[in-house]
Design a protein around this nucleic acid. Sequence first.
DNA 1: TGGGGCACTATGGGCGTCAATGGGACTAGA
DNA 2: TCTAGTCCCATTGACGCCCATAGTGCCCCA
Lengths: 147, 147
Amino acid sequence: MNRFLGHMTNRIDAKGRVSVPAQFRLIVQSAGHTELYALRSLHLPALDVGGPELLTRFDKKLESADPFAETADDMSFYLHADGGFLKLDADGRITVTDFLREHTGISTDVTFAGANTHFQIWQPDQFEAHRARVRARLAEKRRLETS
Amino acid sequence: MNRFLGHMTNRIDAKGRVSVPAQFRLIVQSAGHTELYALRSLHLPALDVGGPELLTRFDKKLESADPFAETADDMSFYLHADGGFLKLDADGRITVTDFLREHTGISTDVTFAGANTHFQIWQPDQFEAHRARVRARLAEKRRLETS
DNA sequence: TGGGGCACTATGGGCGTCAATGGGACTAGA
DNA sequence: TCTAGTCCCATTGACGCCCATAGTGCCCCA
């Protein structure tokens, strides 16, 4: 199964490292990659993470867009300046840099959440809160539709 | 991975020098260059920087254009008069000249921002402001499209 | 079927290397 | 002679690479 599924929380050690769940790691590593591409989400305090091909996928979308539109400039700036590579060490850990902390509020623990084609990095409480909000919205929507 | 990605801020020392991030330096140096070509961005208080081949790349684009068109003249003038070379010292640093300071407002710190095929040099606050603006524009656009 | 051992993950830590930064000395031009 | 630009070296803190250990699930075999 090469989809990112489920969520789990790991602790950051004294040197600022955290293990990427083996389940997620395997998907990336089996594609021959030793680094991850991470992008600060636009509307959530989380990062979207995947193998380097995630960036390639975004780039391709950019190329097909109108290169004169201001949006294309914005998009390129966002993808390349607000995203970065995370190196996996020999034990499958990444170091949690300020690049991650500032956007997510992460301090001592990290929640990894599957999102099918990629996964997300969250501060655990933020993740819980978001999960609760999503559930509430879906329940509300269902209630409206069936009444 | 030989693309310019992510952003980081370095301090200018008492002699007006600043380290180019190793990550970016490696890309240029592995192509055998010890100089950088920098061009003042048209729309932004930043400079577009890359190896000398960046100028070549722009030149090529020019050659394919109509040499009698006024815009080609303008373009050529712009590339050569508003651009310059930055020498990398043995430790991978550049000296921050007035050429850089005037256009960017840089004083004590420099932010380097990846832009895929090249990178940019910013005054840190300006960079943050631009980053926030870009994110806001993209988020707004997304909001309109999905509603 | 129950127990022992194997495999593997998450986590901790040692240590050498390298990047970022600071500063001295030498050179050349004004 | 003074100033600006080079070249070189020192320091320190971060990071990569390596190995160790504890906890856990799984498999295999008696």
